[in-house]
Design a protein around this nucleic acid. Structure first.
Length: 99
DNA sequence: CGTATGACGAGCC
DNA sequence: AGGCTCGCCATAC
């Protein structure tokens, strides 16, 4: 439940706070948005982003450091790599985690 | 208003 | 370690 407004806009606002070169997880964004177990809701929200650049969706990954996208995983890895985020055998080093 | 849908996550083999 | 199951929850229809 959201006191004011729907949840998606708040999720987008939170994702926009993730700095370049850092990553966060679906579960973390959900908790920051006030959802105790809303990781899937965050995934749904990012999946339905109005425009590709409305929020830095590529900085959101799974809790185990892997990429959640099925079709565009390579593109997400490329975007992250361009920001200096390193991968260790398919997983993002969680020391890039944010906060 | 009930059912289905995910870019999840934790737990259990 | 890697795969499966089940719970979760805002939306879509």
């Amino acid at each position: 439940m959201s006191p004011l407004g729907s949840v998606f806009p708040r999720i987008y606002a939170l994702v926009r706070r993730v700095p370049r070169g850092r990553v966060t997880t679906y579960g973390d964004v959900a908790r920051l948005a006030g959802l105790r177990n809303g990781a899937r809701t965050v995934g749904w929200a990012l999946h339905s982003l109005p425009t590709a650049e409305a929020a830095p969706w590529w900085r959101v990954i799974r809790s185990d450091g892997t990429i959640a996208l099925r079709r565009a995983a390579a593109q997400q890895r490329r975007r992250l790599a361009r920001e200096g985020v390193r991968f260790t055998n398919g997983k993002v080093d969680l020391r890039y985690g944010w906060p």
